[in-house]
């Protein structure tokens, strides 16, 4: 294959972009790749600028205060525009400080998704119970779809037990 840029030399470098599942391929010769900064073993392409673009569609006013001045993260002092510019957050707190403004971008990357995965040791029992319940319900749906009724019954019992624990908790408080 000939280099797609100079169309003279043989292409030796394949650059594959993957943006939200859309892949584009670029085949370059060594010298064109070097010119475009792709040749060095340690070089990697500038993902930041792509990500910055992804962010720029976000609802900017959401990050503005009442007076129109820009809010800052109470922990690290990052503004939303600084985050947008670098495509990276300043600290863990930024996620809560700019949650609504960030959400459209997060959805654009990951879809309309809720976290399902490992919980840290520090997660409270209430979070653990809620997540377990959600994952059991999902498992129940799967079992029903696969017509595994015995397993479905088992899962249903576990769900009941977990929901029961919530009610018990409520009752104890009332009494």
């Amino acid at each position: 294959m000939k280099c797609q840029q100079c169309k003279v030399n043989p292409a030796t470098t394949r650059i594959v972009y993957n943006i939200n599942g859309n892949t584009t391929e670029l085949n370059l010769c060594a010298s064109c790749a070097a010119k475009s900064n792709y040749s060095s073993l340690l070089g990697s392409f500038d993902f930041d600028s792509f990500f910055g673009n992804l962010f720029s569609h976000s609802v900017m006013p959401a990050a503005l205060g009442r007076g129109g001045e820009e809010q800052t993260c109470p922990q690290c002092g990052s503004t939303f525009s600084a985050i947008t510019e670098r495509g990276r957050l300043g600290c863990a707190r930024c996620y809560t400080a700019f949650y609504n403004a960030l959400l459209p971008s997060i959805k654009r990357i990951h879809g309309n998704a809720e976290y399902k995965g490992k919980l840290p040791v520090s997660a409270g029992p209430e979070i653990k119970r809620k997540k377990e319940l959600a994952s059991l319900k999902e498992e129940l749906n799967k079992a029903v779809l696969l017509q595994e009724y015995e397993r479905a019954a088992e899962i249903r019992d576990r769900i009941k037990a977990l929901e029961g624990r919530e009610n018990d908790g409520g009752n104890t408080k009332e009494s």
């Binding site: 990276r88 990357i109 990951h110 809720e114 976290y115 919980l119």
Partner: peptide, 20 residues
């Protein structure tokens, strides 16, 4: 103590790694 959010999972520098 790892940075974690109930809705977003483990919080990362770049949002593309958010979650697990």
């Amino acid at each position: 103590s790892f940075a974690f959010d109930e809705r977003l999972g483990y919080l990362t520098h770049c949002p593309t790694n958010l979650g697990t």
